[in-house]
Amino acid sequence: MVDIEQINPRNEAALRAWWEVGRAATAYRPGKPWPVWEQSRVALPADNPERGITLIGAIDGREMVGAGLLTRSLRDNLHTAMAFAYTRPDRVREGIGRRLVEELEVVAAGDGRTTVQSEAYLPPGGSGVPEAFATAMGYAVASRESIKELTLTDYLARREALAASAPVPDGYRVITFDTVCPDEHLDSFGRLLGMLLAEVPLGELDLEDSEWSAERIREAERRQVAIGRHVQTAMALAPDGSVAGASDVRVDDSDPAHGQVGITLVDPVHRGRRLGLALKVATHDLAVATYPELVSVDTSNAEVNTWMNAVNDALGYRTIETLLELQKTL
């Protein structure tokens, strides 16, 4: 008989069993779909002022055959939660995934969340079992994104031409830093971060704008430092000294061969100057210089975001998956 139980992330043996299920369930996907063990071992039990998590496992006797994760913001969008369910490949089609999702929805509802969001990954432009399962569970597609991967050899082959095509505009400066924003730019950076959800294409996702105070930024930075995650950031400064845009590549100490783009955002007032491409080149240069062993970087963008997709294509990113952003009202 399979039982659904909550997993304590500070119980390392239980966490490792949970992690193994997720790794096995995502092994068929291209790219880097699952974090290395050390990254999960450090990050999941760590205190997080931004996000609450619940881990659940499907237990059959002494074996974990399914794993679930519920995350929810603790600062904004308090009506939403994100749910993820994974079934060990040798135990699919036994109803384990359904039971995991149902339990995650119960936890979300108990926490006062009324909208649950999730993700399904498919071959580029294709369809498959994850989409059918989501539909059967009552989840609608709210947005479509492309998962893209860049090999650093491809980037380095293009780098000089890219830099020449997108010089920093007259009167602007680009600065870089590792995770911790300089004090003098902190308030202006918070203003930019507060624009993010209003400026990126969300489709039908039920998400609201957020506010980023100086203290909130510093709390997030402290957590990144504590778990060994480096947010290699490039920031564009306008002629008046305000933050005009920012982009980052995130690399964990536990996995220095792989990076992930976090955000890329240019204030609408400063668009039309190719700042986005200039910032991307600066972040990728910083990541390459800091991590000689870096092999690849991945990112995702809404399919309708033609501007950012064009920037990523110019950098050498190639689409490896289609991501369906899913949503259900409880």
Rank of each mutant, 00 (worst) to 15 (best):
T306Q: 12
I59R: 15
Q260V: 13
R173T: 10
A27R: 09
A226L: 02
L69W: 11
G66L: 01
Y86P: 03
I175L: 14
G95E: 11
A257V: 14
A108Y: 10
R158K: 14
K280H: 07
I56G: 00
E325K: 10
E293L: 09
E12L: 14
G128Q: 11
A46Y: 03
D154Q: 12
V141S: 01
D187A: 15
G66N: 04
Q6V: 12
D90G: 04
R41Y: 02
I175Q: 07
A132V: 09
I175Y: 10
D285A: 03
N48S: 12
G112C: 08
D206G: 02
T299M: 08
D47R: 14
W307N: 07
R191P: 01
V266L: 10
V116E: 14
E149K: 13
S188K: 04
A198S: 15
G276A: 09
R41Q: 09
V180S: 11
S118V: 10
G259Y: 08
L275H: 02
D90V: 05
A14M: 14
Q6G: 00
R159G: 00
R158T: 08
F84L: 02
D206I: 02
Q327D: 05
A25R: 00
V200W: 04
V311R: 06
A134F: 03
P268T: 12
L193S: 02
G171K: 12
F189C: 08
R72D: 10
W34F: 12
R144I: 05
K32R: 14
W37M: 06
L70M: 14
